[in-house]
Write a protein that binds this DNA or RNA. Sequence first.
DNA 1: CCGGGCACGTGTTACGTATAACGTCGTGGC
DNA 2: GCCACGACGTTATACGTAACACGTGCCCGG
Lengths: 343, 343
Amino acid sequence: MSGAARPTSRDVARAAGVSQATVSLVLGGKWRGRVSEPTARTVRATADELGYRPNLAARSLRLGRTRTALLVVPALTHEYFARVYAGAARVAAERGFGVVLYPSPEGIGPARDPFGSARAAIDGVIASSMAADALAGIGDGGRDGGLPLVMLDSDPAAPGEPPTVNLAVADGFRQVTRHLLALGHRRITHLAADVDTWTFRVRGEAVAAELAAVPGAVLATEHCALDIAAARAAAERALSGTGPRPTALLCDGDVLAAGACKAARGLGLRVPDDLSVTGFDDLSLAVAVDPELTSVRLPAEEVGAEGMRALLTLLDGGAPSPSELPVELVVRGSTAPPARPRP
Amino acid sequence: MSGAARPTSRDVARAAGVSQATVSLVLGGKWRGRVSEPTARTVRATADELGYRPNLAARSLRLGRTRTALLVVPALTHEYFARVYAGAARVAAERGFGVVLYPSPEGIGPARDPFGSARAAIDGVIASSMAADALAGIGDGGRDGGLPLVMLDSDPAAPGEPPTVNLAVADGFRQVTRHLLALGHRRITHLAADVDTWTFRVRGEAVAAELAAVPGAVLATEHCALDIAAARAAAERALSGTGPRPTALLCDGDVLAAGACKAARGLGLRVPDDLSVTGFDDLSLAVAVDPELTSVRLPAEEVGAEGMRALLTLLDGGAPSPSELPVELVVRGSTAPPARPRP
DNA sequence: CCGGGCACGTGTTACGTATAACGTCGTGGC
DNA sequence: GCCACGACGTTATACGTAACACGTGCCCGG
């Protein structure tokens, strides 16, 4: 069925009338001063004609490196992580590397050792901060097993931390908070994801710090899980509690913001006339809902790309410096000045 | 830095006082009647203690198989394909396989041979129909290069087609059409994606066939690209053309439906009171927008899972039968009986 | 008492590659 | 005229695993 077997470097050598070693040298690019130009040309032509592809398994075995990185993310179905993957894969491909995914424990089945065989076939790991829990469960009691590791969206100041690639999340939240304050909002509720990772922890502080600078501004916080239904329920709590109602909901993500909008409509409040809502992440969802969400754009692809660059530097023996990528406030239709208090 | 090197099967053998061959036999599971139970136990214990992991490169080289499949999808950022991946990865993991992604040519850079090195390290390919174009450009002039291949959402009746896993897309469109007809809609516009693959081609026919059975029902079709902005523009064309306005927009996907809803609101039409809109795919987006979309739920994970099962069957020398997975209409708030014609 | 089997392992090899170590041939310097 | 040396390749080996093809003893039937 499959006809001829894949040609090996020896087949190429035979066809070109040289030794296997020469083929390896030429195709490996380290032949300067060892093989003549015409011979090299012949070898390349022959390899091309036979459709030769080096056997990666053999190469990996010989070199002890696999040219494959592992990317650990909590869930690919979240657009942010899909985009992180895309960026990482792009940079990897440029350098002849592959990227294999480990998309969270619950996604892959109840393996005792979740990495399973992948562990042996990779040169390094890029791990999302949100996946740190999964990471802790693997291998030699939570150690990285000696594998080069790059962390995404993890606390850069943590002691003994591996190289990190971060988003300026705190800055993003300061920006969005200032945007609401500038519009005139003074009663703001932070709809916070109940996820205990660095990237989420810094948000509340950033919001509080900005509000503290404005006399009369009051902050409330409502926690919920990272899905629409939970966000809707939390927003309903925030909007129907006793005391004066907040005029703006500052959400930890576009998904939460979408839930908040639904809660508002359910309560007969119009967005943004009666209630301003802000998102975060700037997913495609942000422009799919009505009104479109004021949000904060994250360079997700660049996070993946930069993470991969850092890992490659690490593999080359270098010491990548921690990087922080800027984010950008995108104002759309879900925010407006607060309605005048009812007479 | 990394301290001790990874233990090999020979290290285990030395520590356990047996030969490397014995270790391989025991750990490979084919030792029944060849190695005594106590010896086997000792070997396993020693391997465990040393933290032995077989070197996958070596194993692949020896066996000529890599236990890795390639999944070709057009874009991971589309939730449907992320879910297909999840399903495929789950089944693969159960069988000790890995899944590597090839997420479209534009996503991975302008490599002349897009598969690049991945090509050599895989045992088989699962390809989404939408990625057929990308597939055609690779390797030996469009041939599959002898690699086992499973197609997802591809025409099962095409001659010489590899094994396929399909969704009952036509049935889904018949269901959604009947739903609209049952509500009383007679002027329906099909907002169709301008993608020329089987899974999209069959839709128009299905809708037309259902409408043909109902006297007085008229069908229009508007084509657009698969994104929100394009859908919105197309919907505006459909809703503001001459002649009687359609009372329902039947969309090829939730993304298009979201765009259609925005168009409706922009024109001052309420959904579903003035216009019914239906989606397809039942992404998380369907319940994020307001009103929630009547849609058709696709077992995306199961498509990936079934595709992987078919590939594994193929690799075992079997002949998987084409499978068609059922879909399910989910009625939500974006559809209602048409408004009475204005007096 | 001897030989055949059986239970239990072991020696050896090959997978395809990269590279260190080693020729070989021609040529130029002295 | 001879040696050293550069240019050009080749031979040989190791990476770690799986599995084929053999040993060893030992038991048991004859």
